[in-house]
């Protein structure tokens, strides 16, 4: 009897964060992955890193930014190639879902959907819409990566990763001067098709040297962060 050859899975899309270890290599192509977490959980840093990973490899990527939270200057610092990034700024969840579906159909290999922080305009959306998004991802072998403060995509998500609320790392001791030197959080794999769940990885992040207090040549008086 002839043995059936197993179809090789397409290579995953690395995010260059601890998420890659949880998802054995990165975001799986053709499947919807949801990253949930409250504020200051490292969720936004993770999606920015995934955009930097894709665009630095010469690939096009799209960010559907419902919270309008994207800062181009910070993204450059994170390594995002802005020329390859399409920034879409919808006003509510319905527009967000339609935009993501249009982008997947348009051939974008990575579509990051960030729902921002609560209150999300439009609530959780219809489950049918999320299922359509997952189907579009499967049809186009693209990656929809959804970042949300709470679970929204229901059964449409092939993978769900939860980011715990991060712990701020400060240098110095009270009552002396303090300085934010990092954030530590935990990523837990809650669900992944064909993979074992409930695994945890540590996410360590450090702030850039200059966020707004920058050292740009065009600076007109911003003080440099110590």
């Amino acid at each position: 009897m002839q043995q059936r050859e197993a179809t090789p899975l397409p290579s995953p899309f690395p995010t260059a964060t601890a998420l890659d270890k949880l998802l054995t290599g990165g975001l799986p192509q053709g499947q919807l992955v949801e990253l949930i977490g409250l504020r200051s959980s490292g969720r936004f840093s993770t999606i920015l890193s995934s955009l930097a990973s894709a665009t630095s490899a010469g690939e096009a990527a799209a960010l559907v930014d419902l919270g309008d939270a994207f800062d181009p200057q910070l993204a450059v610092t994170a390594g995002v190639d802005l020329e390859r990034l399409l920034w879409v700024r919808p006003e509510h969840l319905k527009q967000t879902l339609i935009s993501a579906e249009v982008l997947l159909a348009g051939g974008f290999p990575l579509v990051v959907v960030d729902l921002g922080n609560p209150p999300v305009p439009g609530g959780r959306g219809l489950e049918a819409s999320w299922l359509r998004l997952a189907k579009a991802a499967q049809n186009h072998q693209a990656v929809p990566f959804v970042s949300s403060p709470y679970r929204v995509s229901g059964t449409a998500a092939a993978g769900v990763v939860k980011a715990d609320r991060g712990r701020a790392l400060w240098s110095g001791a009270a009552p002396g001067p303090r300085l934010l030197v990092g954030l530590s959080s935990h990523l837990t794999l809650q669900k992944m098709r064909r993979q074992q769940g409930n695994r945890t990885e540590v996410l360590r992040l450090k702030p850039p040297d200059a966020l707004i207090y920058g050292t740009s040549a065009t600076s007109t008086g911003g003080g440099a962060r110590p």
Partner: peptide, 20 residues
């Protein structure tokens, strides 16, 4: 896109800020 796929950028572990 480049003719040859460049190496992906290593993670910088940057703490990002959501702009309000």
């Amino acid at each position: 896109p480049p003719d040859v796929r460049p190496k992906r950028q290593e993670g910088r572990g940057l703490l990002a800020i959501r702009t309000l």
